[in-house]
């Protein structure tokens, strides 16, 4: 067992973990932050994306021990304390960018990271960036549209709904 300590969503968090414990497991099972989802075991689906020191990371691909001392943000940190959704979350709701919601935390965390680096991405840039996030429900149409809308682009010309 190793002791790990990190900042998660602005609060100190620590725990004893096995060497093989993944960050996704630590977040879900030790801290009870079940918004981070696990959709695969080959680092392909992106349901588990969180931010580690400001970068989008698949939390199933790093060990909890590797995140020792890091600043981690999960989906649970994205809305304001009064419940107001952030721009990406709001755009996902406005444009029906989610159905079952299982891929959604990872999609939102990826989109937030994308917009930080590229405040006004093109459709092609968004689609390329989302290579590592699989959604089985939406066909991506409304996810791409929502991210464009969240970046302030006019999406009214994109087919309705």
């Amino acid at each position: 067992m190793t002791q790990v300590s990190m900042t998660v969503n602005g609060q100190a968090a620590s725990g004893d973990v096995e060497g093989r414990t993944l960050l996704s497991t630590f977040l879900r099972e030790h801290l009870g932050l079940t918004g981070t989802h696990v959709g695969c075991d080959t680092s392909q689906c992106g349901a588990c994306v969180v931010h580690v020191d400001g970068n989008a990371v698949k939390s199933c691909t790093i060990l909890a021990a590797e995140a020792d001392g890091a600043d981690v943000a999960t989906i649970e940190s994205q809305a304001a304390a009064d419940g107001t959704l952030n721009a990406v979350q709001q755009a996902f709701q406005d444009h029906h960018g989610l159905q079952c919601g299982f891929c959604t935390p990872g999609m939102v965390m990826s989109a937030v990271a994308l917009l930080k680096d590229n405040p006004s991405p093109s459709e092609a840039e968004i689609r390329a960036y989302l290579e590592g996030n699989i959604c089985r429900c939406t066909g991506y149409h409304n996810i791409v549209k929502a991210i464009m809308a969240a970046s302030g682009q006019d999406v009214s010309a994109i087919a309705a709904e």
């Binding site: 809305a79 996902f92 989610l98």
Partner: peptide, 9 residues
């Protein structure tokens, strides 16, 4: 959507 978007599904 709100619960899914905020991680409390």
């Amino acid at each position: 959507d709100v619960r899914f978007l905020t991680g409390v599904g």
